[in-house]
Design a protein around this nucleic acid. Structure first.
Lengths: 129, 129, 129, 129
DNA sequence: GTGGTCTAGACCACA
DNA sequence: GTGGTCTAGACCACA
């Protein structure tokens, strides 16, 4: 369902938050789609329902989902929140690139990395415009 | 001298470590160059000398600096450590790009960001605008 | 017909109760007027008939409406209940004003707000601008 | 220190949040002022530290305070958040007034209430302008 | 069954 | 001592 790493440094609730937020902002979860119940996620991931609850709570606060007690949680129709999230992801990537540059990563290294991740990156004569 | 954020989530000693490591791996601090004394850094940043000490200790462990008791700490001549650091920065950038992609950042957005940071990527003969 | 918010924090039955109670205490629903049938309200609002039933039950308990089995529900002639409701609304507004004051809302801000909602407060002879 | 009602309907963490937020937005807690430690508040109020933690967490998220692990929590210097809070309190008061009006509260009743709470409300010839 | 709140209590990194 | 995370488990209102 969702993926988390229990050994990683990032708190579980944050991993879950980011994972779900990513699914929403990238369109892999659609507006109105129902999220799995708190307790089920907890059972599947082998973590405490409280931890899942925290993630859902934060997602709701961010406007990405809405919860109806006794019914369930659903992806929000509000696309403002998703757009804000996208802007935030962009900002973060920019900051990380700054850090990388400061650490001596060259443009070539960056570009080669990006190609691996996003696929061939329109190097020469492709008219992607 | 160095920059840290007291309110940020990252521990102070880690921020300091990363900051200095970046200066070294990117060549802005040269081999043999003397680092400012622990106590001075602490006073300037308004933090506990123990915290600075921890950062220096970790930098020494990583092979990036060496300390001569009663003299001071110096940037290491050993370039292995710097290379390892460089590899690590690359890895981290890769991970962040993965995360960004998962969050819906497109190749185009990434490229445009990279160009702002590293300047136009026209190292060889590619004329991609 | 009536308005409710499924995503809001307040329980549906409470929203419905308050909405109808407001219509009665403000005179927009008259004594003896027939309320729409439980099932119809439920269908229109897309909620469970039990939930509507609960609201009607509470309205009846409060003396604001009365139900005749197999005929329907009607706004009560009893004005005691409506008066009690009015007193309750007053009390609530007072509490909210206390909260607002504690949050730093000034008398001026309050007054300007009230004027927007109730219209210019110039009932008697006061010429305060 | 702070006040909460264990019998009220509003969740404890929310009462605490609102109480502290009010102190900040109304200027009774100053920028940079230290908040009492989570555990101490919990002990004084006879509630669980987790509940206090939740309030502090939300206050930090709202930008009203910032927490430095192992040091403490402090009122934020950022006045944007406090302004947003003020705007929010205004909005809420407006909504409550709308509700009150819908429930049949008259302008006179409202004004008389406001006078009790904010003090004499510049009715006639006072030149508060 | 569902989301939400809360307690009791453990543990962690950090200062 | 401090904020922060997490578990285990209880209980609630509501649908």
């Amino acid at each position: 369902m969702f993926e988390i790493s229990l050994t990683g440094k990032a708190p579980i609730y944050e991993q879950l938050y980011n994972g779900i937020a990513g699914l929403i902002s990238s369109g892999r979860m659609q507006s109105g789609e129902k999220l799995p119940p708190v307790r089920e996620v907890a059972k599947q991931l082998g973590i405490n329902p409280n931890t899942v609850q925290k993630s859902y709570f934060l997602l709701e606060q961010a406007g990405l989902i809405y919860s109806i007690p006794a019914k369930g949680s659903y992806v929000s129709e509000d696309c403002e929140a998703a757009q804000a999230l996208h802007a935030q992801a962009l900002k973060r990537l920019g900051e990380e690139m700054e850090t990388a540059k400061r650490a001596g990563i060259t443009a070539d290294e960056q570009r080669s990395l990006a190609e691996k991740i996003w696929g061939i990156n329109t190097e020469k004569g492709d008219n992607h415009d």
